[in-house]
């Protein structure tokens, strides 16, 4: 190049609302740190808090939320959202309770519930993809529909007396010493493991991340974008129905008003777990941690006798705000310089 050739000053780089380098682990690590700090604080403040069983109870009490958060993670990673999950949980519980009451075989009931949830999610995904309607409004319709179908099945609560379900509700899987978990915990952790494998070891999982990173880029790279976008809602629906079954194990009933607002908890857990609501960044393990943080908030409030239960909602809202602001801060900083 000749001396006289002036190279142009670099243009304003496209504003990258992306996390760079190691920063992508930062939100998740922050959540893990927060969880450990809260656990440590609990140990200092309350006698008996620092025990393995307190930790395991966090899992036992939140199995359904863990599974929901896993499904929600898939959806949010693609930049979408699923508002229907709480209602689909309730619908799954109602279907299960009603069929069990009618004397169905529990295995067939579970299979049918899972199939229903997955199909419900796939249908929403198809509407989102084919008609290009915002996920928010389609899954809102899904919320109404599933909740309404609950009432169609029964307005009253249905008790589950099926021996398999009751045995699952009472079963304790002993670990070392006096520690134990419920079968639901095992199922939830298996779901987390499978999700982790799918997201990190399959082309489908990588396409999920690619869509969140840039949908048009993913299309230009020849990835199966439409199929993947439909499937994530199917996965979320499937997770919702698994969560419904787990919730049934836990509550041994079906009730139309069950799991109201659970979609907010699931979204909060995913966001607190470090997944960016704009998609592309986040981990199921982060979402698991997010659920544990929400769980420990609840534990705190039950230990602190003077605090009432509604503080849970307020604290979750505050956590949500803090993490959204953190996300904003992260993404603003990383405009490439």
């Amino acid at each position: 190049m000749s001396v006289l050739t002036r190279t142009p000053a670099p243009l304003d780089r496209p504003r990258m609302t992306r996390l760079r380098g190691k920063a992508r682990y930062a939100p998740t690590l922050a959540t893990m740190g927060l969880f450990l700090a809260m656990f440590a604080a609990g140990a200092v403040m309350y006698p008996g808090f620092l025990s393995g069983q307190v930790f395991l109870n966090l899992l036992i009490d939140n199995t359904f939320l863990i599974v929901l958060a896993v499904g929600m993670t898939f959806v949010i990673l693609t930049g979408g959202i699923d508002l229907s999950v709480g209602s689909v949980v309730a619908l799954s519980m109602m279907i299960a309770a009603a069929l069990l009451q009618a004397g169905w075989n529990p295995a067939a009931v579970i299979a049918l519930v899972l199939l229903t949830g997955a199909t419900f999610g796939l249908l929403m995904g198809l509407v989102i993809q084919v008609f290009e309607i915002q996920p928010f409004i389609v899954t809102l319709a899904g919320l109404f529909l599933a909740r309404g179908l609950c009432y169609v099945i029964s307005v009253d609560s249905i008790t589950v007396t099926d021996p398999f379900f009751t045995s699952m509700a009472q079963a304790r899987i002993p670990l070392v010493g006096t520690l134990f978990v419920s079968p639901g915990v095992v199922i939830a952790l298996v779901v987390v493991a499978v999700a982790f494998y799918v997201l990190h070891q399959t082309r489908f999982g990588r396409t999920v991340y690619a869509i969140g990173g840039g949908e048009s880029s993913a299309l230009l790279m020849g990835l199966a974008v439409p199929r993947t976008k439909v499937l994530v809602y199917g996965i979320s629906g499937l997770c919702s129905s698994i969560a419904g079954i787990l919730f049934s194990f836990y509550s041994l009933s079906g009730y139309s008003l069950a799991a109201t607002g659970l979609e907010l908890d699931a979204i909060a857990a995913v966001v607190v777990g470090g997944t960016l609501l704009t998609g592309g960044y986040g981990y199921v393990l982060g979402s698991l941690t997010g659920v544990l943080v929400l769980g420990i908030v609840q534990t705190f409030i039950s230990y602190e006798g003077t605090l009432s239960s509604w503080w849970t909602r307020i604290v979750i809202g505050a956590l949500l705000l803090v993490f959204i602001l953190l996300q904003k801060l992260f993404t603003r900083k990383v405009r490439l310089t």
Binding site: S309, R313, G317
Partner: peptide, 26 residues
Amino acid sequence: IGIQPIIATLVLMTAGRGLAQLVTDG
């Protein structure tokens, strides 16, 4: 702050009923 509306208002949607219960003491 420039947060997407759906997310910004989600915060108050989540915390709001807790605040209302706080006021009425449940």
